[in-house]
């Protein structure tokens, strides 16, 4: 058995539809896991690979929309809703909740498969993004406290002299810190460093901060 690169979860109380969807996905070369209820889906042991969820709105235990609300609080594959009788309020609710699509039964193969592929791709991208940011965060954690102070000053475009004055250290010392930051963050250029800082949410210093630094220096 080859290593699975992607998977589709199907949650619908109708066994016939589960089977049919599994068959359809299989015919497209996509593996599917089917669940008959939300509870079954929640408790199941699912592989951690790029995935997509096809979710029926009407479920025996809890409503599909409620399930959506619960799972999307954490990292979760995109959801494609299917419903027997789609009404506007639940559609709106599903889309607001971040659903990828909302398909009324019987749905066309193209629409379903397009949504499924988009979902898987999206999940894959999110997964890689999650991996990158995790690596950045790991690198950021290696910075010393002084280096963490230097980073925002540098990425906000201050000259070395200015940044040194801001921190009340010599320009030479600042240059040293800056070089360390670049190395630890594995940034090839200042532009890389700026991008990393943005991803990490390390904001550049504010003008107030700058003003206050001037004042302290004076």
């Amino acid at each position: 058995m080859t290593k699975r690169s992607q998977i589709v979860f199907v949650v619908d109380d109708d066994e016939r539809l589960c089977d049919a969807l599994g068959e359809l996905l299989a015919s497209h070369g996509i593996e599917a896991m089917t669940f008959r209820s939300a509870g079954e889906y929640m408790t199941a042991d699912k592989p951690d690979i790029p995935a997509c969820l096809i979710l029926d709105v009407e479920l025996p235990d809890i409503n599909g929309l409620d399930l959506q609300r619960r799972v999307t609080q954490g990292a979760h594959p995109p959801i494609v809703f299917i419903t027997g009788h789609g009404d506007i309020p639940s559609t709106v609710r599903a889309m607001k909740g971040g659903a990828l699509d909302f398909l009324a039964k019987p749905f066309s193969e193209d629409a379903l498969m397009a949504s499924v592929r988009t979902g898987i791709a999206q999940d894959r991208a999110e997964r890689s993004a999650r991996v990158e940011i995790a690596s950045l965060r790991r690198r950021y954690l290696t910075l010393s406290p002084r280096e963490r102070e230097v980073l925002p000053l540098v990425v906000s475009g201050l000259l070395n002299k200015q940044a040194a004055a801001e921190l009340g250290i010599s320009e030479v010392t600042l240059q040293l810190h800056r070089r360390n930051v670049m190395q630890k963050m594995e940034a090839a250029s200042l532009a890389d460093l700026v991008r990393f800082a943005e991803r990490l949410g390390v904001s550049s210093i504010s003008p107030q901060r700058k003003g206050r630094a001037d004042h302290e220096r004076g």
Binding site: R16, L17, A20, K105, P106, E109
Partner: peptide, 10 residues
């Protein structure tokens, strides 16, 4: 629609 959806998918 439920069986129809299954029919279509199948």
């Amino acid at each position: 629609n439920q069986p129809l959806a299954a029919v279509v998918a199948n």
